[in-house]
Design a protein around this nucleic acid. Sequence first.
RNA 1: GCCCCCAUCGUCUAGUGGUCUAGGAUACUGGCCUCUCACGCCAGAGACACGGGUUCGAAUCCCGUUGGGGGCGCCA
Length: 467
Amino acid sequence: MRRESYMVVTRFPPSPTGHLHLGGARTALFNYLFAKKNGGRFILRFEDTDRERSKEEYVTSIISALEWLGLHWDEGPYFQSKRFELYQEYARRLYEEGKAYYCECSKDFLEERKKILQGHGLKPRYEGFCREKNLPPGPGRALRIKVSVDSEIVFEDLLRGKIVFPPDEVDDFIILRSDGTPTYHFAVVVDDITMGVTHVIRGDDHISNTPKQLIIYEALGVEPPKFAHIPMVLGPDGARLSKRHGARSILEYKEEGYLPQAVINYLARLGWGYGDQEYFTMEELIEKFDLSRVNLSPARFDPDKFLAINAYWLRAFSAEDIYPHLLPFISHYNLSKYPKEKQIEMVNSVRVRVKTLKELAEMIDFYFFDEVSFDESAKTKALRPELLPYLKAYMSEIEGLDFEDEKHLEAHFREFAERHSLKVKDLAQAIRVALTGKLISPPLFEVMRILGKVEVKRRLEKALQSI
RNA sequence: GCCCCCAUCGUCUAGUGGUCUAGGAUACUGGCCUCUCACGCCAGAGACACGGGUUCGAAUCCCGUUGGGGGCGCCA
């Protein structure tokens, strides 16, 4: 019989007990990239065997985060909660083959034994009380796998090479809870087998779990997949990611004005490098991603660098590409005030000055004001009374200027300043505040051109009245 | 406590025994540019955790120490 042609299959198996955070997103990304790079399939599977903690809202939020990032799955989403019969079938097989047995030990009793063992400085483990009892299934009985390992447990990690565990590392652990639901390790293995997963790329916090899963593969008589344990993402303080920093939902970064491209780029560079290259599009990542270049040590999340990468993509993309992402941030502005081409020009003029879409939106808000709202300190600083006569003179002169021509506006402005022995800077700042309400704005003549002659005159007049 | 993983500038990394007086990015400092703020450009400061080996030669290989991370559930 001919074997089916070899195809790479990876999966991302979040448990819907929280939002998708940076660590999870990076695991998803690496699995996605590896699959795409090798022309394989990428599966999404929700590990929701813990019905207590699993929430529908997290399923929804994880899915939209993945979609926003552009991490499209080829199969799924599967839900373990809908596959219980399958796990029970596999478990029954092990039981019938004598590779698993029912255990009637109570949780309290087990808890007590654990404490005693720990008290003796031993690793807490199940001591096999029910192993030889030959108990049939029954209420309150959990199914344990019979573990008899007489040599070291070894597996070849794609990144780290051989990883060796002592023979007594694993005890007779539970694969089916007393309520008949599967435990994590068992469900994962059955799923990976039935879904044809060839490469398991996951956080290195799973290294210590791998022996258990290897034992299940062995009992089931199935060749295990290849494993690649990638280092975890740590918080800026080097501790585990917590709510305070990176454990925030990916969707929160979306709301703060990060581009999906920036998130992908930042995540890719956390624990992976490609020479001196810093910026990658998804296409480039798919082309260049390689497990052998994945770092082995945990990486800290650095908000500054993340921001810098976002700022880079804000500059690198065209204003047209950025615009759709910006829309949600400016939707409450009076957008009908300007045609889309002018809005695009606004984006163009400020995108090098901001680091997020949110900041971008804030920087162009003045264009849409009916009444300029002044920053008081800016006003006192720049709109000084002694400038009043000059501003009036300037206002009367702009009547004859071509506002479509920035160069023309600027030339006249400089000439005007010189004629009145004014510093260009002083006059510019005064007009800037008059038009925008702020000390910081896009280049003045660009602002004037986009605003148009009528609006500029109107705003100048208003400002002069208030001095 | 037991077991596992890891170790280059503050941070992310390049580096796979000689090309390393260790490169890039970010953050920081100074300068240039300049109508503001940015962008950009130039310059500066900043690291191979420590101790033993192996080798003619080690950031690169081995061992130990220290430090960091993770696992040890009828959670995932």
